[in-house]
């Protein structure tokens, strides 16, 4: 397994946002993390990224224990991420944003610039390279976050709602990009609300509800699972939905 999380618990005071979740990601996987609002998937995601420390449980990456590793250590080991609300370096140009990521593997400026040019070309951001990050709209920012993450040359990319808030046309372009990222040999874990994305992209879907994993399987099997349906709609809702 490339990434393995066991018995992850994350408490905020008495509240357990993540309550004993497990996840195993094999090299080459595309995993979709789904679940209703407040299910704990974003908290779980931030634990995986090293942004917040787990209260209990262990995480290993490529056989190495990374439970207590910092975000910068994650990047060094080859785990990159995007943010739910894009956090670009606003006053820097698009190319400079990517360059910051490229410096991780290429401390010299010339090599970092060459790597940056390749990533900008790959993500289709090359025409916007000299514009400031603040001039980009939401789709551009999300794309820039992916580009910046790719520049760190990761083995695993964690995408936190990288497609939320996009129009259907933009979603299709983003799905296309994610496919090409995967074709580069990068393993993906995607948190996503949009079912279409999970159904078209993910090899496996993992469903969160009240801090626990309630289903884990192929996307089609998971959406047909009664436990998943009731978690999304609520038991009383499904009863009320019956014809009167």
């Amino acid at each position: 397994m490339l990434l393995e999380a066991r018995g992850i618990v994350k408490s905020f005071g008495a509240f357990r946002a993540v309550d004993g979740a497990d996840l195993a990601v094999a090299e080459g996987d595309i995993i979709g993390l789904i679940g209703p609002n407040g299910a704990g998937k974003s908290t779980f995601f931030n634990v995986l990224a090293g942004d917040t420390a787990a209260t209990a449980g262990t995480i290993t990456f490529d056989g190495r224990d990374i439970t207590r590793a910092t975000p910068e250590e994650h990047a060094q080991l080859g785990i990159a991420r995007s943010f739910q609300v894009p956090v670009t370096f606003e006053d820097m140009s698009v190319a400079e944003n990517v360059l910051v990521g490229a410096f991780l593997r290429h401390p010299g400026r010339a090599a970092a610039e060459a790597a940056t040019a390749e990533v900008l070309e790959f993500t289709g951001l090359a025409p916007l390279a000299d514009g400031r990050a603040r001039s980009l709209g939401t789709p551009g920012r999300k794309r820039l976050e992916i580009a910046r993450a790719l520049a760190t040359e990761p083995r695993l990319l964690l995408l936190d709602e990288a497609l939320a808030g996009l129009t259907p046309v933009e979603v299709r372009a983003a799905i296309e990009l994610v496919r090409r990222v995967h074709a580069r040999g990068i393993t993906l874990v995607i948190v996503e609300h949009i079912m279409e994305v999970i159904l078209t992209l993910a090899h496996r879907a993992v469903v969160f509800h009240q801090g626990r994993v309630i289903a884990d399987g192929t996307p089609r099997a998971v959406v047909a699972d009664p436990a998943v349906v009731s978690a999304y709609l609520g038991r009383s809702m499904s009863r009320r939905a019956a014809p009167r």
Binding site: T70, P71, A75, F83, F89, G101, L104
Partner: peptide, 8 residues
């Protein structure tokens, strides 16, 4: 936060 995520 973003800088750390890029290994800075």
């Amino acid at each position: 936060r973003a800088a750390r995520s890029l290994g800075v």
